[in-house]
Amino acid sequence: MRSERHVFLTVMTAAMLVFSLTPLVLVSVFSVNASRFYAFPITGLTLQWYSDLLSDDRIWSSLLSSVLIAVGVSAISTCMGTAFAFVVVRGTGRFWRTASVLGFIPLAVPVLVLAAALQVAFVEIGLPLGYGTVIIGHTIFATPFVVLMVVAQLFRYDWRLDAAARDLGASAVETFRHVTLPILMPSIRSGAILGFLLSFNEWAIAFFTGRGFNTLPMLVYSMQRNGLPPSVLAYSSLIVIFVLAAVLLLLPFVLRMLVRGAAQETT
């Protein structure tokens, strides 16, 4: 039963991995290549491009902008998204079912359209473009993903745990604080990290609705337009390492949830 077909599937999976990893591995390799160009041959080892990148003042101010925005987006979208996840999972009746679906609608609209619409709206109502407007735009973009993250665990949540807590004398608020929230914490934390990363690496909304500063993607976007300086490769490589670290932080939980299914929960 397990033979020829699985060869095909295994090969496809291996090919997918090669496809996924090669570009990012390559960019990391060339980030320490002595040649200025993102091209063969490999001429030697250097950390020059990293020191170029890190000695560029614009990088540090952009990093600050990006982190400020991403932290704000992560905090807001995690709060709103977690709350809304409860609506998705526990809302009954046609009204709340419809509302639940509407909550995901930003996923079906191109980010660029959202960016353009927000720019027009902010200018029309006279809201000055800046950190606040980018945070708003990124929050609209990132929150549906946070909701999905929390919903994934909430769907498997055993509501009898709430009943048990109430039975043992906990009020509704105490039940939420001491039972529901701690059990959901891993997926909420994952949602927060996801919200941070989505905002941190987003370019279009920041480009349309941000003025007076550059986020890292905005800066790197303008840098790479002038013949792709090698410091962009160093940046890419650092981002890959950073995201890998963040994902390692986020994933043990998500993967346990995905791979093992509901088995480890409750009973």
Partner: peptide
């Protein structure tokens, strides 16, 4: 495998 795909995915479209 899921971890590697997610990590590369979250590096963002620009990179």
């Amino acid at each position: 495998i899921l971890l590697l795909v997610s990590a590369t995915f979250l590096a963002g479209p620009l990179v």
